[in-house]
Nucleic acid binder design. Structure first.
Length: 269
DNA sequence: CCGTTGCCCTGCCAGC
DNA sequence: TGCTGGCAGGGCAACG
């Protein structure tokens, strides 16, 4: 599942595309293109030069010389993978970008829930997205301010992209374990020290996951098709029945906010 | 604004 | 062996 560390790793791997020019664009499954609809998407991208490849939350963003941007949402099983135009195409390719130098960028997606869209210069496509948790603005004070008056379970708040952009189910579970906080706790009910611990745990977990090139539990691979390494050091995610690494109590799986949630009943309070 | 629910979509796997 | 139902979960729309 591509969350912040996975999309960051993909975007870094796609830096080789900077200054390259897009030739033809083949849309294999039209409904994954949000806008512009129909043939306009391919036509408007043709000839565009890529000026930067970035990440915002869980979105990959390709800046174009024209000031427009190609925005890709990978959702659950989406991939952005490099190859050569001469190689065979993925059977689940949804949009294929052929660069003029023979490089191919494929947006592949088994479950077809991912989306691509072309946004106009200055278009506020990410207005509803919250703060970047690895930016300097994500201070303990900023985080604590988000929790005030919020009765929602702390885990649901961590997953709310309008507050913090980029945390998904894996890293929400892992950060709460690291901070020793029960995922069901009402956000506003956390003590000040607990809020500080959670702030630090979020930053630490995301940075460690980036350093290990993301978590490959099902479909995730980077821009070169390589798996990440963080699945080998997960503490709770997907670990139902396994002993907690801190206290030995078996990890439980419950459902919070309609998401599977793995945690330790003993040391997460 | 806040919180909750429904829906999308396919591969995998436990259980019968 | 073959079928079925549940699960994986991010983003968006809709509702009170």
């Amino acid at each position: 599942v591509p969350e912040l560390p996975e999309v960051e790793t993909i975007a870094r791997g796609l830096q080789v595309l900077v200054h390259k020019r897009i030739g033809t664009v083949d849309v294999r499954l039209p409904r994954v293109v949000q806008t512009p609809a129909g043939a306009d998407f391919s036509r408007e991208l043709r000839g565009a030069r890529i000026s930067a490849v970035q990440r915002r939350g869980k979105y990959a963003v390709f800046r174009l010389d024209s000031g427009r941007a190609l925005v890709v949402s990978l959702r659950m099983t989406g991939r952005l993978v490099l190859s050569r135009t001469s190689e065979p195409e993925s059977p689940v390719a949804r949009v294929v970008f052929n660069l003029t130098d023979g490089t191919r960028l494929t947006f592949a997606d088994v479950r077809t829930l991912g989306r691509v869209r072309l946004v106009e210069p200055g278009e506020a496509w990410d207005d509803a997205l919250g703060i970047e948790p690895l930016s300097s603005g994500f201070t303990p004070q900023a985080f604590i301010g988000m929790l005030a008056g919020r009765t929602t379970p702390i885990k649901v708040l961590l997953l709310d992209q309008r507050r913090i952009a980029g945390i998904g189910n894996i890293y929400a579970c892992e950060a709460l374990w690291e901070a020793r906080i029960r995922p069901t706790r009402a956000a506003e009910s956390l003590t000040k020290p607990a809020m500080n611990r959670l702030h630090d745990a979020i930053v630490n977990v995301l940075n460690r996951a980036i350093a290990m090139r993301g978590t490959s539990v099902s479909d995730y691979v980077d821009a070169n098709g390589a798996e990440g390494g963080f699945q080998n050091v997960l503490m709770v995610y997907g670990k139902a029945g396994m002993p907690c690494c801190r206290c030995g109590t078996p990890i439980v799986r419950t459902v919070i906010g309609r998401r599977g949630t793995w945690w330790c009943r003993t040391c997460q309070r």
